[in-house]
């Protein structure tokens, strides 16, 4: 029986699709060079020439917000990639081995709970230069524990299942068992969490760029655009409104997608 996909799934994937399309489009076509300054057209409101208006240098906000989608997606994917792979490996290891290894790994992972993304970024930025890589690493490391916990829990419940025990009795190697039987069972909560973590990562990237700890200042990322717009809010609201709305739509997209996936994949949690 096929269930109708929940509304949140439809809305979420539409929004995320839009952002991805914007990023892809920005690679092949842009209405205006996003860095071209036009001092004859500063603070233009949205119009025919500049669809979403211009900023304090007369740069086209539409083009810049399209380019900004790249940073939002790139930083998000890399950061979540880091936390997902690191978290899953650690969680699987802890759950599968159990005992002292479990205790040790989870104790270490738990320490990361004490360092949310911004705090981690402060620490890393003090040591290395602030920048895109530092931001990605900080966001990635900070979100490791969620994945590790999820993975460990899945492995723990699946480990005792009959078909895994049967496989073990038949002499299947441990990595093979883990790969063939346990991991597929853990996949759906991980995918859901990845989507939710992407929402967090987009917010964190924007905050870090806003603080000057993220994407370099001359790259049009949404956080950078907001930091620059801060000085000119009295002259035109659009340079602040446009990237803010872009962030909201993207974050909303990922979190709706995550919720929708959860409802879709596991109807029992449906609320």
């Amino acid at each position: 029986m096929r269930r109708r996909p929940p509304l949140s799934l439809v809305m979420g994937s539409t929004l995320v699709g839009l952002v991805a399309a914007a990023a892809a489009l920005s690679l092949v076509w842009l209405p205006v060079d996003p860095n071209r300054m036009d001092f004859g057209a500063q603070f233009s409101p949205p119009g025919v020439e500049h669809w979403l208006g211009t900023d304090h240098f007369g740069r086209d906000l539409f083009s810049r917000v399209l380019v900004g989608a790249r940073s939002a997606l790139l930083v998000g994917f890399v950061a979540v990639g880091i936390s997902l792979s690191l978290g899953c490996v650690l969680g699987a290891l802890a759950g599968w081995r159990g005992g002292a290894a479990d205790e040790l790994i989870m104790r270490l992972v738990d320490v990361l709970y004490a360092f949310p993304a911004i705090l981690m970024a402060l620490l890393l930025a003090a040591v290395y230069q602030p920048g895109t890589v530092t931001a990605m690493a900080a966001i990635g490391l900070a979100t490791v524990p969620v994945f590790a916990r999820l993975m460990r829990a899945s492995v723990l419940t699946l480990r005792g299942r009959d078909y895994v025990e049967a496989g073990r009795a038949l002499g299947a190697s441990e990595p093979r068992l883990l790969w063939a039987h346990v991991l597929p069972g853990a996949a759906s909560p991980i995918v859901v969490q990845a989507s939710l973590s992407l929402a967090i990562a987009v917010l964190a990237e924007a905050a870090l760029s806003f603080l000057g700890l993220g994407t370099p200042p001359d790259v049009p990322s949404w956080g950078n655009m907001l930091r620059e717009a801060q000085g000119f809010m009295a002259l035109s609201p659009f340079p602040a409104l446009v990237p803010g709305l872009a962030i909201i739509l993207t974050v909303l997209g990922w979190s709706l997608l995550g919720d929708g996936l959860r409802d879709h994949l596991d109807p029992t949690t449906r609320r």
């Binding site: 907001l226 717009a229 602040a240 962030i247 909201i248 979190s255």
Partner: peptide, 18 residues
């Protein structure tokens, strides 16, 4: 609440200042 959770606090701060 879903929408509210997606709003960056610093952006909200900027709007409140305006």
């Amino acid at each position: 609440s879903q929408l509210g959770a997606a709003v960056p606090s610093f952006w909200l701060g900027l709007l409140l200042i305006i």
